[in-house]
Deep mutational scan, measured.
Amino acid sequence: MDVFMKGLSKAKEGVVAAAEKTKQGVAEAAGKTKEGVLYVGSKTKEGVVHGVATVAEKTKEQVTNVGGAVVTGVTAVAQKTVEGAGSIAAATGFVKKDQLGKNEEGAPQEGILEDMPVDPDNEAYEMPSEEGYQDYEPEA
């Protein structure tokens, strides 16, 4: 019985440690998101679009440190934060509304985080759909 109880105690310690790591990862992701939003706020009209992409990228980098179902929630929060940063930029006159959601080359930025393969159960990952990809044929 002692062996059984000791095993359960060790398992509990492992769960607590994993929860603490997840909590730490979420806190880091939130900190990076805040950094990115402050970065966007300090940019001029020309830099705002690039700044919004930076927020998304920093958040995406930190999301990889967070495991399990938390990833889905962090990704949703990050996307809403990026959308909010863009709205703030438009409201303050840093950028025109028609410039939001495009990178410096004018290509749409939507789907940055949505296409990231995420499995809350950590069982399997699927690649994003290939609808947006084109076949590449090298020139002879």
Rank of each mutant, 00 (worst) to 15 (best):
35 E>N: 12
98 D>I: 06
83 E>C: 08
84 G>M: 15
113 L>Y: 08
117 P>M: 11
26 V>Y: 13
130 E>K: 10
140 A>H: 03
58 K>E: 02
122 N>K: 14
82 V>T: 12
35 E>R: 11
116 M>L: 09
31 G>N: 13
133 Y>Q: 15
104 E>Y: 14
23 K>P: 00
39 Y>V: 11
46 E>F: 03
117 P>D: 08
46 E>P: 12
95 V>A: 05
12 K>W: 13
42 S>H: 10
135 D>Y: 04
69 A>I: 10
121 D>T: 13
13 E>S: 02
83 E>S: 04
127 M>N: 08
131 E>H: 05
129 S>G: 11
85 A>Q: 02
56 A>Q: 06
66 V>K: 02
120 P>G: 07
11 A>K: 01
31 G>L: 10
55 V>M: 13
33 T>F: 01
117 P>F: 05
35 E>A: 09
108 P>A: 06
125 Y>L: 11
54 T>G: 06
77 V>A: 09
136 Y>N: 05
98 D>S: 05
61 E>K: 13
15 V>K: 00
34 K>P: 00
91 A>S: 04
112 I>P: 12
97 K>P: 04
28 E>P: 01
131 E>Y: 09
113 L>C: 02
47 G>N: 10
76 A>E: 04
130 E>M: 09
91 A>T: 10
82 V>H: 04
76 A>T: 12
90 A>K: 05
12 K>G: 03
88 I>W: 09
97 K>E: 08
86 G>L: 07
66 V>F: 07
107 A>T: 15
58 K>A: 10
103 N>S: 12
132 G>W: 12
64 T>C: 10
102 K>L: 10
48 V>D: 00
31 G>E: 12
10 K>P: 00
86 G>D: 05
22 T>E: 00
55 V>W: 13
97 K>Q: 15
36 G>Q: 06
105 E>Q: 11
118 V>T: 06
106 G>T: 11
45 K>L: 10
73 G>T: 10
43 K>A: 13
45 K>W: 15
21 K>A: 10
117 P>V: 13
112 I>F: 05
46 E>M: 09
99 Q>S: 08
43 K>Y: 11
121 D>N: 07
8 L>A: 01
65 N>Q: 07
33 T>R: 00
82 V>Q: 05
32 K>G: 01
121 D>S: 14
34 K>R: 07
20 E>I: 12
88 I>C: 05
33 T>L: 06
136 Y>C: 05
10 K>Y: 09
74 V>S: 01
90 A>L: 11
90 A>D: 09
53 A>R: 15
2 D>P: 02
30 A>S: 06
72 T>N: 11
94 F>D: 03
120 P>S: 08
30 A>Q: 04
46 E>Q: 07
133 Y>S: 05
5 M>F: 01
109 Q>R: 14
12 K>Q: 07
92 T>K: 04
58 K>I: 13
14 G>P: 01
4 F>E: 00
119 D>A: 04
20 E>W: 10
42 S>V: 08
93 G>R: 06
135 D>F: 05
39 Y>W: 06
24 Q>W: 08
58 K>N: 09
84 G>L: 14
67 G>C: 12
7 G>T: 11
23 K>Q: 09
36 G>I: 15
12 K>R: 15
111 G>M: 15
122 N>I: 06
27 A>V: 07
137 E>C: 08
35 E>W: 14
37 V>G: 01
113 L>H: 15
54 T>Y: 13
30 A>K: 03
103 N>I: 06
86 G>P: 03
79 Q>E: 06
13 E>C: 03
26 V>T: 01
85 A>R: 05
48 V>G: 01
120 P>T: 07
12 K>E: 00
121 D>K: 14
83 E>K: 04
21 K>Y: 12
104 E>A: 15
58 K>T: 06
138 P>G: 11
17 A>C: 10
71 V>C: 08
38 L>P: 00
70 V>G: 01
33 T>Y: 10
131 E>P: 08
36 G>E: 06
35 E>T: 07
70 V>S: 02
124 A>L: 06
45 K>Q: 03
112 I>H: 09
125 Y>E: 04
77 V>F: 06
95 V>R: 13
84 G>D: 03
80 K>I: 05
10 K>V: 08
84 G>K: 13
114 E>D: 14
29 A>P: 00
87 S>W: 13
53 A>V: 08
81 T>Q: 02
108 P>M: 07
92 T>Q: 03
100 L>I: 07
5 M>N: 10
90 A>V: 15
58 K>R: 12
138 P>K: 07
28 E>F: 05
86 G>Y: 14
97 K>L: 05
30 A>F: 15
93 G>E: 06
11 A>E: 00
97 K>I: 10
115 D>L: 07
106 G>K: 14
120 P>F: 03
93 G>A: 15
55 V>N: 00
92 T>Y: 10
13 E>W: 07
99 Q>L: 15
135 D>M: 03
63 V>R: 03
72 T>M: 14
40 V>P: 00
54 T>D: 01
96 K>E: 09
118 V>P: 10
87 S>A: 13
40 V>G: 01
26 V>H: 00
121 D>L: 08
93 G>V: 10
43 K>E: 00
37 V>A: 14
17 A>F: 03
86 G>K: 12
55 V>L: 14
124 A>Q: 06
104 E>G: 10
37 V>E: 00
25 G>D: 05
7 G>D: 00
114 E>K: 15
109 Q>H: 09
72 T>E: 12
126 E>K: 14
107 A>Y: 05
95 V>P: 12
90 A>Y: 05
26 V>L: 12
139 E>M: 09
43 K>R: 14
84 G>S: 14
28 E>C: 07
42 S>R: 15
77 V>C: 14
45 K>V: 04
134 Q>I: 06
13 E>N: 11
5 M>T: 01
28 E>D: 05
90 A>Q: 09
92 T>I: 03
27 A>C: 13
88 I>F: 10
75 T>C: 06
67 G>M: 15
130 E>Q: 13
125 Y>S: 05
19 A>N: 01
94 F>K: 06
74 V>Y: 10
35 E>Q: 03
78 A>M: 12
101 G>H: 12
70 V>N: 01
137 E>A: 08
82 V>D: 01
80 K>E: 02
110 E>Q: 05
21 K>H: 11
46 E>Y: 15
38 L>S: 04
103 N>V: 05
93 G>P: 04
115 D>G: 09
133 Y>T: 04
108 P>T: 15
87 S>K: 03
125 Y>H: 11
32 K>L: 12
60 K>D: 00
122 N>L: 03
140 A>Q: 04
51 G>T: 15
36 G>L: 15
97 K>N: 12
59 T>M: 02
67 G>H: 09
125 Y>M: 02
9 S>V: 12
56 A>T: 11
79 Q>P: 01
10 K>R: 11
93 G>F: 12
102 K>E: 08
47 G>L: 14
117 P>K: 09
98 D>L: 15
61 E>C: 10
7 G>C: 12
97 K>H: 14
122 N>P: 04
19 A>Q: 02
13 E>G: 07
72 T>R: 11
96 K>T: 14
102 K>I: 03
55 V>Q: 02
96 K>A: 12
56 A>S: 15
79 Q>Y: 05
22 T>P: 00
139 E>A: 07
132 G>L: 03
68 G>F: 10
129 S>F: 04
140 A>P: 09
71 V>N: 02
51 G>Y: 14
110 E>N: 15
